[in-house]
Amino acid sequence: MTDISERGYAHAEMLVSTEWVAEHLNDPNVRIIESDEDLLLYASGHVPGAVEVDWTADLNDPLRRDYLNREGFEALASRIGITPETLCVFYGDKNNWWAAYALWVFHLFGHTNARIMDGGRLKWVQEGRPMTREMPAYPRTRYTAPERDDSVVRAFRDHVMQHVEARRPLIDVRSPAEFSGERLHMEDYPNEGALRGGHIPGARNVPWSRAVNPQDGTFKPAEELRLIYEDEHELSPDDDVIVYCRIGERSSHTWFVLRYLLGYEKVRNYDGSWTEWGNLVNVPIER
C-alpha cells in the first residue's frame, strides 16, 4: 500500500501509519486507544501503552439508548488520562470499525484532535510489532468537556424523514442481505432486533467494508473510494449525506471515509439506524 500522504485524501492528516504509532508510543501528547468488536482482544494483548475504550461499557448511557453525557465523557477522558489537547489515536479489529465509532463519539464532545491508525490491529500484528498484556496506568486528568453537540455529525429520525422527503442521499452500509430485508436479526436475541426488514426509501447500499483493503485493513486510496461512492453511487462532495447501518457503528466507519478521506463537508451518522427505523410505526420502508 502506498504512503498515506500519496493516496489523495482530502484530510490525510486524520490517518497515521503503524510506523508513526511505533515512534510515538511514549509521546506524552499522544494517547493510543484500542476499540474492538471482540471484547477479548484488548485483554489478550495490545499496543504497548494503549488504553481500551469499549463501546458498551464506556460510550453508551447505561439506561437510555443514547451516548454518554458531558459528565460521563469527562469521567472517561479523566480515566484514560487525556486532556483536550491530547492527540487520540484510535485503532481496533474489524478494519477499524469500532475505532471509527469511538472517534465519532469523541467528535460529539468536540475532541476532534483524533486520528485513526491505518490498518488497525490487523496491520500492527501482521508487521510483528510488539504487543503486551500489561495494563497501562496514567495519572487521572481533569478534563473539562463542552456539552455534547449532536448537531454536526449526528442525525436523528426526523432528520432522516426530511432527507427521504427531500430525496437527499442516504447510504445504507449494511450487508446486501440486510439491505434487502432477507436478513433481519437472529431470533431469540433479546436486545437489538427489528420488526421489519428492508431499507430506508432511496438509500443506496454500499457495505462499509468496501472502503478497505481486506489483506491489511488499510483504507483504499481516494481514487478507488471515489469510484465506489461517486461513480457507482452518484454521491458528490457537496451533498448532504446521512449514513446508517443497524445501530450506527459500521456507518461511523463510512462517515469517517466520506468526511475525512473524501472531504465531504456535511455527513451525519444516523445511529438510531435500522434498529430504530425498522421498529418505528408508520414510516416508509423499501425492499
Binding site: 468488536e37 471484547l39 458498551t56 436479526h185 437472529m186 436475541y189 436486545n191 443497524r246
Partner: peptide, 20 residues
Amino acid sequence: DIVLKIFGNDISMGKGQGLM
C-alpha cells in the same frame, strides 16, 4: 442464550449472533 450467560448481557449484537 447460554452465550449471554458466558459472555454477558452487554455483548454486541453482531458478536452475540455469531456465537449463538
